[in-house]
Every structure is written in C-alpha cells, then in structure tokens.
Nucleic acid binder design. Sequence first.
DNA 1: GTCTATAATGGGATAGAC
DNA 2: GTCTATCCCATTATAGAC
Lengths: 191, 191
Amino acid sequence: MNTRTALLNSAESAARQRGYDGFSYADLAQEVGIRKASIHHYFPKKADLALELLERYAAGFMDDLAEIDTANSSAADKLRAYHTLYRDALVDGTQLCLCVAFSAGRDSLPEPVLRVLNQFHADSITWLTRVLSIATDDGSVAGLTDAEAEAHATLALMEGAQLVARAADSAAPFDRATAAFIARLSAPSTH
Amino acid sequence: MNTRTALLNSAESAARQRGYDGFSYADLAQEVGIRKASIHHYFPKKADLALELLERYAAGFMDDLAEIDTANSSAADKLRAYHTLYRDALVDGTQLCLCVAFSAGRDSLPEPVLRVLNQFHADSITWLTRVLSIATDDGSVAGLTDAEAEAHATLALMEGAQLVARAADSAAPFDRATAAFIARLSAPSTH
DNA sequence: GTCTATAATGGGATAGAC
DNA sequence: GTCTATCCCATTATAGAC
C-alpha cells in the first residue's frame, strides 16, 4: 500500500476513535512508520488531511448506499442494510462513523470540512426520504406516515445510537436503541 | 457569584460547545477574570474539574426529570417536557447536552467521569422506561408496544438529533428529527 | 485566594540535507 | 520522498511570593 493511503487509513481509525482534536501527526507517524515531518509532504496542513479524509469517507458511504440500492429490492431490506452499515461502523463500540466523530467537535473543523459534513447529512436525508417514500407506498414499514420526517428521525437515531454505544465502549446500546426501528420493518424478502 | 461557581459555569458552556479536549484553563481564566494558575486552587487537575462539572450537570438533569414528573400528570406531557429539555439545551445549535459533548471524546475522559456519564445514561433509561410503561397502559403514545426498547430509542434519538443540529450550527435539524416522535404523543392535557 | 514565574510536554509546521 | 533539526505556540501543572 502506498504511504498516502496508509496515512489516510491510520488517520481514519484514529479520528473515528478520538475525534479531530484527538489525533496528531505523531500518532500517524508511529503507526505508518515514518517521521511526522514526512507527513507534511502529503498533507501540508492537518486541515488538508481532514478534508481528504472526510471526502473519501463520504464518497465510500454513498457508494455503499448505491450498492444497497442494487442489492436489495424491497424498502425494508434497504433499511435493514442501512442499519447494518452503522452497526458495522461501530466495530465493538470503539469506533464511530467519521461524521459522528467530527460533529461533536465541529468548532475545531476547518470550514471546507464542515461543508462536506453537512453535504453528507443532506445526501443521507435524500436517500432515506426516497427509500421511506417507497415504504410509505408498499407498507413495508409499520406506522409510517411522513417519509421525510422519518428520514430525519432515522439519521438522528443511527447517529445517537452510535454515540451512546461509544460512551459505553460496547455495541450493545446500539442494538437496544435500534431494535424498535428494526421491528417495524416487514420480513426480509427470500429470493 | 463565587469564583468556584463562575469557573464551573464557564467550563460548562465551553465544554458543551467544544468538548473536553476543546477547552483550556486559559479560556476559563479569561472569561472569569483571574489567572489560569489560580484555577488550580479550586480544581488541582482538569480531571477534578471535569468530574465536578458532569456530576453537577447530571444532578441538575435528574432534578429536572423529577420536576417534570410532578408538573405533568400524563405520560405524553412528560415526554413533551423531556423533549423540551433537550431542545432548550441546544440553544441555537451552539451547545450540546454535556453528556453528548463528552461521549464523542470518551477516550480523553478520566475514568471517574466516564462512570458518571454511563450512570446518566442508565438513569435516563430508567426514567424513560417508567414513563413509557405508563404510556403503554394509557395509550397516549401511538404505536407503542415495547416500553424499554422505546426508551433506548428515545434517548438515542434526542442525542442524535442534537448532534446533527450541532453539525449544522442550527436548531432546525433537531426539530425535523424529533417531529415524528412528537406527532406520536396524544394531545396535551388542558387543566 | 490570587499572583508571577517557570517547568515539562506535546502540538502543528518549516528549512534544508540526503 | 524521507530524514534531522528546529521553531513557535498552547497546554497542564507546580513552586513560592504576597
């Protein structure tokens, strides 16, 4: 793997564990095995690193959503897969979605990073609203009336469930917090 | 106001804006109008300050919950008041609940602070489960079947809604994310 | 209880050799 | 592309005078 990618990978896991303020070039240098001055060759400022990090993360997430769309035909299946995305990102309560990790410390974020963060939220709402609109029509989510309101609620639920789990350093609170949401989804399609 | 309280107040608003890693003794010194060395007279280590800060916050929050219980008779009214607590804590998207602000950067927190944080979550779940159990019986929350599962979901929803709002530096996302929850509550009692 | 002074550490960042 | 060496600054924390 090239050094640039290794640095981004190391920065991602550090940022998802400890936030933007919580990791340093010294941490990355140790993990990747170069001196911290060398990192500036790839990312002159920490702001450059943070921007590329979040852009890569958001793009990967949107790719995942597109793949969920093609791999699942029913709205309920898509929403289950969306839930799994957040569940897996938690690992064992040791890591957050990068956007959750960055949101809390928003005041330290460079302005371009903040823009990508809010775009991520906007894109998530667009995707959720579309899927939940389908669910409103086909009845595959129990008690669903307002797709857009539920889209905002679902995003907040996933992010909040991750946060509570992170505080406990365990995935269990995430599962408890999202159980009622999963229970509303109609049975998985079997073909 | 005594200096100790002024320091706690200043630290609280700073921590709720920028997290545990995001505020320093220098910030507090400037706001309170003493030198930063003098802060160590009240709080020898930053860990001491953080612990007292969160203990005070959690105690105040539990007092608020007790007051909500006495001031509201119906479960729906109590849940509306609970929602208002989180809504007001947001200010205009500039401040988080202290527990939300601390959760993201949990790795920097001293261990005693972490214990208070998890106790806060446990106490919140206890309160929500009790209120939602009443609602299960009197039917004042639409589509409610499992009180404990909904308690965990409600806590995650409030915390996540705050986080999304904080990212946007605006209260609007909080209102959008919680609208569906509020819509499930039966009409306010009028006496 | 508050101050000045200072230590000790770690952060982001740069210059210039190789 | 990576290194050593260095700078400047902010941070938490302590010692000791007033």
